[in-house]
Protein backbone atom coordinates (compact mmCIF):
# COMPACT_ATOMS: atom_id res chain seq x y z
CA UNK A 1 0.00 0.00 0.00
CA UNK A 2 1.31 3.36 -0.97
CA UNK A 3 -0.80 5.45 1.37
CA UNK A 4 -1.49 4.95 5.02
CA UNK A 5 -4.85 3.16 5.41
CA UNK A 6 -7.79 4.89 7.03
CA UNK A 7 -8.82 3.10 10.21
CA UNK A 8 -12.47 2.32 10.93
CA UNK A 9 -12.82 1.00 14.47
CA UNK A 10 -15.80 -1.28 14.98
CA UNK A 11 -15.39 -0.80 18.70
CA UNK A 12 -16.72 2.73 18.22
CA UNK A 13 -18.57 2.67 14.88
CA UNK A 14 -21.79 0.83 14.06
CA UNK A 15 -21.91 -1.68 11.21
CA UNK A 16 -23.86 0.86 9.15
CA UNK A 17 -21.21 3.51 9.74
CA UNK A 18 -18.37 1.19 8.78
CA UNK A 19 -20.12 -0.05 5.63
CA UNK A 20 -21.36 3.41 4.63
CA UNK A 21 -17.79 4.72 4.81
CA UNK A 22 -16.48 1.83 2.70
CA UNK A 23 -19.37 2.01 0.21
CA UNK A 24 -18.87 5.76 -0.28
CA UNK A 25 -15.13 5.48 -0.94
CA UNK A 26 -13.91 5.61 -4.52
CA UNK A 27 -10.22 4.97 -3.84
CA UNK A 28 -7.72 4.39 -1.05
CA UNK A 29 -7.07 1.80 1.61
CA UNK A 30 -9.03 1.06 4.75
CA UNK A 31 -8.55 -1.04 7.87
CA UNK A 32 -11.50 -2.28 9.91
CA UNK A 33 -10.28 -2.69 13.47
CA UNK A 34 -11.94 -4.82 16.14
CA UNK A 35 -14.37 -6.48 13.71
CA UNK A 36 -15.33 -8.98 16.43
CA UNK A 37 -16.94 -11.43 14.01
CA UNK A 38 -19.53 -8.88 12.92
CA UNK A 39 -21.83 -9.98 10.06
CA UNK A 40 -22.12 -8.35 6.63
CA UNK A 41 -18.86 -6.45 6.91
CA UNK A 42 -17.60 -4.74 3.75
CA UNK A 43 -20.54 -6.00 1.69
CA UNK A 44 -21.83 -4.27 -1.43
CA UNK A 45 -18.58 -2.43 -2.21
CA UNK A 46 -18.41 -0.97 -5.70
CA UNK A 47 -14.99 0.66 -6.16
CA UNK A 48 -11.35 -0.38 -6.46
CA UNK A 49 -10.45 0.22 -2.83
CA UNK A 50 -8.38 -1.95 -0.50
CA UNK A 51 -9.95 -3.15 2.73
CA UNK A 52 -8.31 -5.14 5.49
CA UNK A 53 -10.52 -6.68 8.16
CA UNK A 54 -8.15 -6.85 11.10
CA UNK A 55 -9.50 -9.96 12.82
CA UNK A 56 -12.43 -12.34 12.37
CA UNK A 57 -15.51 -11.63 10.22
CA UNK A 58 -19.01 -13.12 10.54
CA UNK A 59 -21.44 -14.10 7.79
CA UNK A 60 -21.40 -12.60 4.30
CA UNK A 61 -18.16 -10.67 4.59
CA UNK A 62 -17.47 -9.05 1.22
CA UNK A 63 -20.91 -10.10 -0.06
CA UNK A 64 -21.69 -9.05 -3.67
CA UNK A 65 -18.33 -7.35 -3.96
CA UNK A 66 -17.43 -5.39 -7.09
CA UNK A 67 -13.92 -4.07 -7.81
CA UNK A 68 -12.68 -3.91 -4.18
CA UNK A 69 -9.84 -6.00 -2.74
CA UNK A 70 -10.77 -7.27 0.69
CA UNK A 71 -8.47 -9.18 3.04
CA UNK A 72 -9.61 -10.82 6.27
CA UNK A 73 -6.65 -11.43 8.55
CA UNK A 74 -8.55 -13.96 10.68
CA UNK A 75 -11.38 -16.39 9.90
CA UNK A 76 -14.64 -15.68 8.10
CA UNK A 77 -18.13 -17.08 8.59
CA UNK A 78 -20.81 -18.47 6.31
CA UNK A 79 -21.22 -17.07 2.81
CA UNK A 80 -17.95 -15.17 2.67
CA UNK A 81 -17.83 -13.29 -0.69
CA UNK A 82 -21.30 -14.58 -1.60
CA UNK A 83 -22.36 -13.55 -5.12
CA UNK A 84 -19.05 -11.73 -5.68
CA UNK A 85 -19.06 -9.98 -9.08
CA UNK A 86 -15.44 -8.82 -9.42
CA UNK A 87 -12.43 -7.74 -7.37
CA UNK A 88 -10.90 -10.06 -4.79
CA UNK A 89 -11.51 -11.44 -1.32
CA UNK A 90 -8.71 -13.14 0.59
CA UNK A 91 -9.05 -14.87 3.95
CA UNK A 92 -5.85 -15.70 5.83
CA UNK A 93 -7.57 -18.16 8.15
CA UNK A 94 -10.41 -20.63 7.60
CA UNK A 95 -13.94 -20.02 6.34
CA UNK A 96 -17.29 -21.58 7.14
CA UNK A 97 -19.93 -22.89 4.72
CA UNK A 98 -20.99 -21.63 1.30
CA UNK A 99 -17.77 -19.83 0.39
CA UNK A 100 -18.34 -17.51 -2.59
CA UNK A 101 -21.82 -18.98 -3.11
CA UNK A 102 -23.24 -18.03 -6.54
CA UNK A 103 -20.20 -15.82 -7.23
CA UNK A 104 -20.29 -14.37 -10.75
CA UNK A 105 -16.70 -13.22 -11.07
CA UNK A 106 -13.57 -12.06 -9.27
CA UNK A 107 -11.09 -14.06 -7.23
CA UNK A 108 -11.62 -15.60 -3.79
CA UNK A 109 -8.63 -17.04 -1.93
CA UNK A 110 -8.71 -18.89 1.37
CA UNK A 111 -5.32 -19.66 2.84
CA UNK A 112 -6.78 -22.10 5.36
CA UNK A 113 -9.66 -24.51 4.77
CA UNK A 114 -13.28 -24.03 3.73
CA UNK A 115 -16.28 -25.88 5.14
CA UNK A 116 -19.19 -27.46 3.27
CA UNK A 117 -20.56 -26.22 -0.05
CA UNK A 118 -17.62 -24.08 -1.04
CA UNK A 119 -18.47 -22.64 -4.45
CA UNK A 120 -22.12 -23.71 -4.35
CA UNK A 121 -23.93 -22.55 -7.53
CA UNK A 122 -20.81 -20.59 -8.56
CA UNK A 123 -21.39 -18.65 -11.79
CA UNK A 124 -17.94 -17.58 -12.95
CA UNK A 125 -15.93 -16.81 -9.81
CA UNK A 126 -12.45 -18.28 -9.38
CA UNK A 127 -11.89 -19.83 -5.96
CA UNK A 128 -8.54 -21.08 -4.61
CA UNK A 129 -8.43 -22.85 -1.24
CA UNK A 130 -5.04 -23.58 0.33
CA UNK A 131 -6.37 -26.29 2.63
CA UNK A 132 -9.36 -28.61 2.37
CA UNK A 133 -13.00 -28.10 1.31
CA UNK A 134 -16.03 -29.75 2.94
CA UNK A 135 -18.78 -31.92 1.49
CA UNK A 136 -20.92 -30.88 -1.48
CA UNK A 137 -18.43 -28.31 -2.63
CA UNK A 138 -19.15 -26.91 -6.12
CA UNK A 139 -22.74 -28.19 -5.82
CA UNK A 140 -24.63 -27.12 -8.98
CA UNK A 141 -21.56 -25.09 -9.98
CA UNK A 142 -22.30 -23.36 -13.29
CA UNK A 143 -19.09 -21.59 -14.32
CA UNK A 144 -15.66 -20.59 -12.99
CA UNK A 145 -12.93 -22.58 -11.26
CA UNK A 146 -12.57 -24.17 -7.84
CA UNK A 147 -8.97 -25.03 -6.94
CA UNK A 148 -8.28 -27.07 -3.80
CA UNK A 149 -4.69 -27.63 -2.66
CA UNK A 150 -5.76 -30.06 0.07
CA UNK A 151 -8.54 -32.65 0.15
CA UNK A 152 -12.20 -32.45 -0.87
CA UNK A 153 -15.11 -33.92 1.14
CA UNK A 154 -17.86 -36.19 -0.12
CA UNK A 155 -20.06 -35.48 -3.14
CA UNK A 156 -17.71 -33.02 -4.79
CA UNK A 157 -19.29 -31.29 -7.77
CA UNK A 158 -22.76 -32.76 -7.33
CA UNK A 159 -25.08 -31.76 -10.22
CA UNK A 160 -22.30 -29.63 -11.66
CA UNK A 161 -22.79 -27.69 -14.90
CA UNK A 162 -19.80 -26.12 -16.68
CA UNK A 163 -17.55 -25.09 -13.78
CA UNK A 164 -14.14 -26.78 -13.47
CA UNK A 165 -12.64 -28.26 -10.32
CA UNK A 166 -8.94 -28.95 -9.62
CA UNK A 167 -7.95 -30.91 -6.50
CA UNK A 168 -4.41 -31.75 -5.41
CA UNK A 169 -5.27 -34.02 -2.48
CA UNK A 170 -7.79 -36.80 -2.00
CA UNK A 171 -11.44 -36.59 -3.07
CA UNK A 172 -13.69 -38.48 -0.63
CA UNK A 173 -16.30 -39.02 -3.36
CA UNK A 174 -17.74 -37.37 -6.44
CA UNK A 175 -21.37 -36.22 -6.54
CA UNK A 176 -24.00 -37.01 -9.16
CA UNK A 177 -22.87 -36.30 -12.73
CA UNK A 178 -19.34 -35.20 -11.72
CA UNK A 179 -16.43 -37.10 -13.26
CA UNK A 180 -12.67 -36.92 -13.50
CA UNK A 181 -11.41 -35.43 -16.76
CA UNK A 182 -7.93 -35.37 -18.34
CA UNK A 183 -5.58 -32.62 -17.20
CA UNK A 184 -4.13 -31.39 -20.50
CA UNK A 185 -1.58 -28.65 -21.09
CA UNK A 186 -4.30 -26.05 -21.67
CA UNK A 187 -5.85 -26.90 -18.28
CA UNK A 188 -2.45 -26.76 -16.57
CA UNK A 189 -1.95 -23.30 -18.02
CA UNK A 190 -5.31 -22.11 -16.67
CA UNK A 191 -4.53 -23.67 -13.30
CA UNK A 192 -1.03 -22.23 -13.20
CA UNK A 193 -2.39 -18.75 -13.74
CA UNK A 194 -4.98 -19.21 -10.99
CA UNK A 195 -2.33 -20.44 -8.55
CA UNK A 196 -0.09 -17.50 -9.37
CA UNK A 197 -2.92 -15.00 -8.91
CA UNK A 198 -3.71 -16.62 -5.57
CA UNK A 199 -0.04 -16.55 -4.52
CA UNK A 200 0.52 -20.30 -4.23
CA UNK A 201 3.78 -21.66 -5.60
CA UNK A 202 2.81 -25.25 -6.39
CA UNK A 203 3.03 -27.52 -9.41
CA UNK A 204 -0.15 -27.65 -11.53
CA UNK A 205 0.76 -31.16 -12.67
CA UNK A 206 0.05 -32.42 -9.14
CA UNK A 207 -3.70 -31.73 -9.51
CA UNK A 208 -6.58 -33.78 -10.90
CA UNK A 209 -9.37 -32.19 -12.87
CA UNK A 210 -13.11 -32.76 -12.46
CA UNK A 211 -16.19 -31.52 -14.33
CA UNK A 212 -19.64 -32.39 -15.60
CA UNK A 213 -20.40 -35.69 -17.30
CA UNK A 214 -23.42 -33.82 -18.75
CA UNK A 215 -25.69 -36.84 -18.25
CA UNK A 216 -28.27 -34.81 -16.31
CA UNK A 217 -28.58 -32.00 -18.84
CA UNK A 218 -31.83 -33.47 -20.13
CA UNK A 219 -34.37 -35.29 -18.01
CA UNK A 220 -34.51 -39.02 -18.69
CA UNK A 221 -36.13 -41.79 -16.72
CA UNK A 222 -33.04 -43.89 -17.32
CA UNK A 223 -31.01 -41.57 -15.06
CA UNK A 224 -33.52 -41.69 -12.23
CA UNK A 225 -31.03 -43.21 -9.81
CA UNK A 226 -28.81 -40.15 -10.10
CA UNK A 227 -31.41 -37.57 -9.09
Amino acid sequence: MTTKPIDLDSAFLSLREVNAALQAATSGAFRVLNPGGEHALACGLDAAIEVTIDGHAGYYCGGMNKHASITVSGNAGTGCAENIMSGAVRVRGDVSQSLAATGHGGLVVVEGSASARAGISMKGVDIVVGGDVGHMSAFMAQAGHLVVLGDAGTDLGDSIYEAEIFVRGAVASLGADCEEKPLDEEHKAVLDLLLQRAGFNVDPAAFRRYGSARRLYHFSVDHMGEY
Binding site: R16, G63, T78
Partner: peptide, 28 residues
Protein backbone atom coordinates in the same frame (compact mmCIF):
# COMPACT_ATOMS: atom_id res chain seq x y z
CA UNK B 1 -30.27 -27.73 -21.45
CA UNK B 2 -32.89 -28.47 -18.81
CA UNK B 3 -32.29 -26.00 -16.04
CA UNK B 4 -32.78 -27.06 -12.44
CA UNK B 5 -33.19 -24.29 -9.86
CA UNK B 6 -32.28 -25.14 -6.29
CA UNK B 7 -35.03 -25.46 -3.67
CA UNK B 8 -32.89 -24.12 -0.80
CA UNK B 9 -30.87 -20.94 -0.64
CA UNK B 10 -27.15 -21.56 -1.09
CA UNK B 11 -25.96 -19.46 1.83
CA UNK B 12 -28.60 -19.64 4.53
CA UNK B 13 -30.97 -22.11 6.17
CA UNK B 14 -33.54 -21.30 8.85
CA UNK B 15 -34.75 -18.06 10.43
CA UNK B 16 -31.56 -17.19 12.33
CA UNK B 17 -29.51 -17.28 9.13
CA UNK B 18 -32.24 -15.42 7.27
CA UNK B 19 -32.03 -12.58 9.77
CA UNK B 20 -28.36 -12.17 8.87
CA UNK B 21 -29.11 -12.46 5.14
CA UNK B 22 -31.67 -9.68 5.45
CA UNK B 23 -29.12 -7.60 7.37
CA UNK B 24 -26.69 -8.03 4.48
CA UNK B 25 -29.30 -7.06 1.87
CA UNK B 26 -30.15 -3.96 3.90
CA UNK B 27 -26.48 -3.04 4.28
CA UNK B 28 -25.93 -3.37 0.51
Amino acid sequence: IDQRSACRHPDWTGPDDLAIKILELREI
